[in-house]
Every structure is written in C-alpha cells, then in structure tokens.
Design a protein around this nucleic acid. Structure first.
Lengths: 223, 223
DNA sequence: CAAAAGTCTTAAAAAAGTCTTAAATCGATC
DNA sequence: GATCGATTTAAGACTTTTTTAAGACTTTTG
C-alpha cells in the first residue's frame, strides 16, 4: 500500500517538483497551495505532511499547531530559514523534522522514510520477524523455520497482533477488539480455540512453544 | 521519570560538553567512548542514542546496524560529514536523524525532544521500580534481580499496590478493597496466605525480605 | 446456483493453575 | 507466660485454559 504525503507549498513550481519526486519514489502525493487549504485537505488518510514555511495567509507556527491538534501525522518542515529560534519553535509546536533549502532530494526522501518508518516502530512495516517466524503483511504469508505455514484470517491477525507487540501482554479484550472488532462476552471461548489451533500449526514446524499464556489476562510471545 | 540518553563519542571533550548539555536539560546521560563500548552499554533502559560518526575501530554504518538489530531505540547521528550519500546510507540503516557539526545546542535539544515524543508507538514501559524489583504494568511481568518472577493475578495486584505506595502502610481493608474488590471478613486469612506466597517467590531470587508486617494494621515495603 | 472446501463458533469434558479454607505453629505484645 | 495476630502448609474448591468435535457459516469452485 502506497503511503500518502500531503505537500503544502504555495510555489506551484516547487510543489510540482516535490510531487514528481514523491510520485517517482512510490508515494501518493496530494498537493495544497496554502496553509488553509492544507488544513482542509489533511485527514487520517494522510501519512505524512511536507510543509513549506513561506506561505501567504498563515504562518508556519499556526499551521503546525492546527495540524497537530487534529492528529499526530508527522510533519516535515521545509524552509529557507536558518534561524535557530524559529527551528526550535517549530519543533516545540510538534514539527518532526526541519529541512533547509536548498536540499538534496535523496536526503529529503531519506528523512521522509525515517519518519514513516517511525510510525510503527519497525524498520519494515511489511514484514514482522520473531525468532524463526516471519510474517509478511503484504502477501499474508507466514513462515516458520523457513517453511510456509497456512493460517486462516483470524489466526493470521492474531499472530500479527502478538508479533507487533513482542514485549507486551495482549489482553483478551484487546485481542477481541482488534482481531474480532468487538468486546468479548465473558464465557466466549473463541480466542482460546484460535490460540490452540495457532500453536498446533506452529508446532508442526518447530518444537518451540512461542505463545505464552498470562493467566487471567491474555497472551504474549515468549522472550 | 527522566529519560536516559546514551552518548557515543570518542572525543572526550565533546562527550563532556554533550553530557553537561543533556544533564542541564533534565536528561540522564550515559557516556561511551567507542562504538563497541556503546553497543555494550546500550540496553532497554536507554531511551535515545546520540552517535558521533568519527569513531575509531568501527564505522558508523556498522554501529547503527548493530544498535538497530538489538531494538528500536531512536538514534541521532552527529557528524561533520555533509556528504549526502553517507547521510542517505545511515538513514536507510535506521538512523532517525542526522545533525551536522557545528550545531546549535537548542536545535539538538529540539531534535532530541522530537524523537522522544515520537516514541508513542513503542512499548510504553509502564514500569514501577522498587530496589531491585521491577513491575511492568503493560506486560504483567515482574523481575527480581533481573530474573523473571512468575506471579498469579492476585499476587501481581498485591505487589503492584505495595509498589505504588512505597512509603505508606497498606491496611488490610485497603488491600481487600483494591485487590479483591470487597471488604474483608474479620477472620479471613486469604491475604496472609497471598503475602506468604509472594514473599516465598521473591525469596527465590533475593535474600532480602522486602515486605514488612505492620502488626494489626497491614503491610508495607521496607525502606 | 449448488456442491465442496474451508473457517468459525459453540459446547463440553479434561487439564492446569489459582484461591480459599482450616489447622498447626510461630512470634509479638502486654 | 497468656493472648492474639501472623505465618505456613496442604487439601479441596474453584476458575481459567486447553483440547476435541460437531454444526453453522462463509468462500471457492465447477
């Protein structure tokens, strides 16, 4: 799935250059030509915002504040201003990075990738790795000790949730919320059965028992 | 709780300047004077790493790779090198920011704050610490002297209550209220048995007796 | 569109872990 | 040293989890 980046930049030429750069590098670019327009366009579908500071109408500080108050999408400020005080101010308002013009395209792309990567904490969102299990999010495959494991949809979602939280216990209600999209009724056994099936399938490929039961709470992956 | 920052920098003078800067701004600074030392020192307790590129022994790329393979602590690279290719390379290896020397202290601090702020995705260690016992609320795990202690649900809740009130005696009725959700009947021995089991489990890992009996009242942690 | 294949939920029994109770013993306080 | 609360142990009650299997449901295939 391509990431969507919102470009807020009044200079149509620069806006265009940025759009082409992003598109050529596998992103989906959305353009806004003023701060107010940017705030209108901006919603949950946007994964990152490139904000040029020299905008008519509103100043950068106001826009950052408004963007950040809506949600926590990462914002990279692009600006010709080298003044440290302005930089510090923008960072404190929630900017996630600050790139001064002129910049190298490669560096901007690297900084964009770093911000997007940091959203999930993992360097590569598509593939999760835990011990000798790998889970590939883009083609819904799981391998254990190099061999492919056939999982059903819920089993896959369950393993994915556990692997996304390797150091945390997933509570039963959290699992029902995310994997099943509803609150569990107290005597529901569905999760237990799925855990049982998942363990059984993984055991075919490895002697190790990966999933640990936290009594009365939920499940977690062993250290 | 102060955030801990690991400085990896071979120049003792710069290392010192950074340490003072961080300490004055409310951080807890840990210093390492080579990449290999940095990798040794680095563990879950570190919230962020400042990595200077001009290091003897190992090059920056190798160090970043090793640090990132251990866990996802954010790394800010500090370097005199302006070369874009090196920057891009480091970002792709997992660096989270790149600051070129000379830099303004305020900007470095702002960038550090931005990286620490962004940590929301990572396991928020909701952790209580008392002497050499740590209790992790999101994991439901307890360690004593670094070793994991297996506690049942009530034992965990009991220890948690005591650790949340380190300087206070928890009365029996308070403990029943919070851990058991009901008022105790006078001749109930349940709490005593649980305290006994908790002490027994902790004693496996440490000679120390942590829990003090306050006669006729309840329990508290020793000073 | 119907049959087949696969998946999910439910139920029930067995297994595993935890909690409470009771009784014997220990220790503090007066 | 008498009394009362605290500790410890072990047994049985209780709760939660695991496993199995059957039927309901969904998706795929011909």
């Amino acid at each position: 799935m391509n990431k969507t980046i919102l470009i807020i930049e009044d200079d149509t030429e620069i806006n265009d250059v940025l759009r082409i750069l992003l598109t050529q590098n596998g992103y989906h670019a959305v353009c806004a030509f003023s701060g107010t327009e940017g705030i209108l366009v901006h919603n949950e579908q946007v994964d990152l915002i490139l904000l040029d500071l020299m905008l008519p109408g509103k100043n950068g500080q106001d826009i950052i504040s408004e963007l950040k108050s809506k949600n926590s999408v990462p914002v990279i400020v692009i600006s010709a201003i080298h003044d440290v005080n302005i930089k510090v101010d923008l960072f404190s308002l929630g900017a996630d990075d600050y790139v001064t013009k002129p910049f190298h395209n490669e560096e901007l792309l690297a900084r964009i990738a770093a911000r997007l990567r940091n959203q999930t904490g993992t360097p590569n969102t598509n593939e999760l790795v835990y011990k000798n299990i790998t889970l590939n999010n883009s083609n819904y495959t799981v391998t254990c000790c190099g061999k492919s494991v056939e999982l059903s949809r819920h089993e896959f979602a369950l393993l994915k949730l556990l692997m996304e939280n390797p150091n945390r216990t997933c509570t039963k209600s959290m699992i029902y919320d995310i994997v099943w999209d509803y609150e569990n009724s107290a005597d529901d056994n569905t999760l237990n059965v799925h855990i049982s099936k998942l363990r059984k399938k993984l055991k075919q490929y490895s002697q190790e028992d990966y999933i640990e039961t936290v009594w009365g709470i939920g499940y977690r992956l062993k250290k």
